[in-house]
Amino acid sequence: MKVHFILNGKAVEAEGRPTDRLLDVLRHVFHLTGAKEGCGEGECGACTVLLDGRTVLSCLVPLIQVDGRSVITVEGLAATEKGHAYLERFALKGGTQCGACTPGIVLSGAHLLQEHPHPSHREVAHALAGNICRCTGYQAIQRALSEEPEAVLDSTLLPAADAEREDGS
């Protein structure tokens, strides 16, 4: 089947089987390899992306359910000015070590910060509980997200979710 969706603010189309994983479509069709397959069964969070503004696991999203929706990946976050600054501070504070969980972690983190600009420790822990990190013990991630200056946390952190549809469908 052919699906149309908004990917990082741009209208795109993809051809595939209805049950193809969004993760594979992103990685193999669009060559966006930020999202990783850590487990392939929804347990690790390394494949986290935003679907219609909410965090989801792209290894569990079939292509059929992407039609007409908006997808934001870490590459989209990195492409905005504020997103890039947020990511750089995240690295500076030790939020990434091996980096394999990082694309998922920073998306869960960005989503949290947009909803709660000054999250408590518990809010951070709850919001990121679905992202396994095996390197940091989560402490540096906690510090990075708790200390993020509010100035960056407006709607321009993430790419627009509603780009013009080229085909009008």
Partner: peptide, 17 residues
């Protein structure tokens, strides 16, 4: 800032897969 930091946080780092 760690040398590989920006590549890792932006998803640009290319692991084998």
């Amino acid at each position: 800032l760690r040398r590989d930091g920006l590549e890792k946080v932006t998803g640009a780092a290319r692991y084998l897969d």
